[in-house]
């Protein structure tokens, strides 16, 4: 019998621990698929964050080195400079990359460090129990923004990807989502493109992925996916924010 669907070989046979409806599991799988399809398993190194995805090394069957909170971009810089012919990617959440790690990320982009970042934006600090994140949108309720994020008290959310698109050293910045089959496919293509242009030496690439967190959003998974389209994507519009390659192979 012909096998039409199976686990990517760059993922270990360990069941994900993520909550039902969480975007991390989907994202892990499509990254695994990209690694398989691009035949990168033997030359890719991943840098998982502090946060929900800290245990990513239990799932990916590739070399992985854990970074402390926010420092993924600095660690990746050191690693990629030491191993310029490997593919290096960081996997970071919104608190990690857009609050504590802002400096590391912006400077890595400005230097044009040749690695890729998968930035998972779910608008909350998931692992610590759903506190307000730098990307929590105005009005969104979290455990530290009771009654909804208020501009006067909490300030505006950070649009990190737009900031990174301005950096001269960034090559490719795209925002996608994993809330529908169509968006998942786009995300997969974007990740593949990021890895490819890294291999071609263009410089810093980042895919921001809007990802549902039904547990901390206190929603049903389907409701959470819909909320991404209806609310979140209004504040964080999907699409390519920067592409210096002029490459239309993955246009969608």
């Amino acid at each position: 019998m012909k096998k039409v669907f199976s686990r990517p070989k760059s993922l270990k046979k360990t069941p994900f621990h993520y909550c039902p409806g969480c975007g991390h599991s989907i994202l892990h799988r499509i990254i695994g698929e990209v690694i398989d399809e691009m035949n990168l398993q033997e030359r890719i190194i991943g840098i998982p964050p502090a946060g929900c995805a800290v245990l990513a090394y239990l799932y990916f069957d590739i070399d992985m080195g854990e970074a402390s909170h926010g420092r993924g971009a600095a660690l990746a810089t050191g690693m990629k400079r030491a191993l310029p012919d490997r593919i290096v990617f960081t996997y970071q959440g919104d608190g990690d990359i857009a609050a504590i790690g802002t400096a590391e990320t912006i400077h890595a982009a400005a230097r044009g460090e040749n690695f890729s970042t998968i930035f998972v934006n779910n608008g909350v600090y998931g692992m610590t129990g759903g506190q307000m994140a730098p990307t929590t949108i105005l009005g969104q309720t979290t455990t530290t923004s009771p009654g909804g994020r208020k501009q006067k008290r909490d300030g505006f959310p950070v649009n990190l990807s737009e900031m990174l698109a301005v950096a001269k050293g960034s090559a490719y910045i795209e925002r996608t989502a994993v809330n529908s089959p169509a968006n998942i496919l786009k995300t997969k293509k974007a990740i593949a493109k990021a890895f490819r242009i890294q291999a071609e030496g263009y410089g810093f690439s980042l895919i921001e992925v809007l990802s549902p967190c039904p547990t901390n959003w206190k929603m049903e998974p389907i409701e959470a996916c819909k909320w991404i389209d209806d609310v979140m994507a209004v504040h964080y519009p999907l699409g390519v924010l920067k592409d210096v390659t002029g490459d239309k192979r993955d246009a969608h």
Partner: peptide
């Protein structure tokens, strides 16, 4: 040889971690 003037002390020590994970003397 790799030299980076980092954006902070914190970044520089984590760059050391990255290069050390890769096997280099940092």
């Amino acid at each position: 040889g790799v030299f980076i003037q980092a954006e902070s002390e914190i970044a520089s020590i984590h760059m050391v971690i990255g290069a050390s994970m890769a096997g280099g003397r940092a």
